[in-house]
């Protein structure tokens, strides 16, 4: 990690509301592209954006986490779509059509993952609540989200403690009944303690006059710069959509 000044120039809108809207629309567009050229363009564009934003190295590693079945689609696609043969492995004929389809899917998936990483990777989840609320999501859903985020870190610590206690008693995970029962007890204990904690939290909240209202940080209006960069990025995504719809 290099030294990153806090005020480094960024192409991304700093305002979370604009950022969320832009990334949502852009991913909607990217995920439905039809032609290989535009999907490739989208992929390169996201790659450049990722490079200019100087993303932390740990985030890049996410690109490697492709789900198994995506890989499977990618591998089988060339052999399943009929068309002029490009190459063959044993009795299997890979068609040009099929390779193009696999490449299209590969570009769309990686472009979308890249966008998510660049736009949402650096956001702390706990900060998202106010933005989601400002975007008029149901208040109870936002409250559920914010509190889940808050308690995931607490309960993860609890789980780590329980896990350590198991290891201290020479617990060795393996494929056997004992392992599954032990993990079952661990999860059961986690749930019991969570319910206890919920009871305490609820009482503490009631003490402070909780009546279903939950305060959210007031967000300041987006800066002109945010509107500007948001519209540029949106225009780029729309440009890709136009390119996709109008054959050239």
């Amino acid at each position: 990690m290099g030294t990153v000044s806090p005020m480094r120039p960024s192409l991304l809108p700093e305002d979370l509301r604009i950022r969320l809207i832009v990334v949502f629309l852009a991913v909607c567009i990217f995920s439905q592209l039809q032609s290989l050229e535009t999907a490739f363009f989208a992929f390169i564009g996201s790659l450049i954006l990722g490079a200019t934003e100087r993303i932390e190295r740990s985030l890049w590693r996410r690109l490697m986490h492709v789900e198994g079945f995506v890989l499977l689609i990618f591998i089988t696609m060339p052999f399943l779509i009929p068309g002029p043969s490009l190459f063959s492995i044993g009795p299997l004929q890979a068609s040009l059509e099929g390779v193009a389809r696999a490449a299209l899917i590969g570009c769309k998936v990686s472009a979308s993952v890249l966008l998510l990483m660049v736009f949402l990777g650096p956001i702390e989840p706990i900060r998202l609540g106010a933005a989601l609320y400002a975007l008029k999501l149901p208040e109870s859903l936002v409250r559920l989200f914010v509190m889940t985020v808050r308690y995931v870190s607490v309960i993860r610590m609890e789980a780590t403690r329980l896990h350590k206690a198991m290891r201290a008693r020479a617990f060795q995970p393996g494929t056997n009944r004992h392992t599954y029962t032990s993990y079952g007890n661990l999860i059961g204990m986690l749930l019991v303690r969570s319910l206890d904690r919920a009871h305490r939290v609820e009482n503490a909240m009631l003490c402070r006059g909780y009546n279903g209202r939950y305060p959210y940080a007031e967000l300041s209006a987006p800066k002109p710069m945010d509107w500007f960069s948001g519209s540029i990025l949106m225009a780029l995504a729309l440009g890709i959509l136009l390119m996709d719809k109008i054959p050239f």
Binding site: V146, I155, S194, L195
Partner: peptide, 8 residues
Amino acid sequence: PRAAILSA
């Protein structure tokens, strides 16, 4: 709050 802590 209870549902949130359970989902966590």
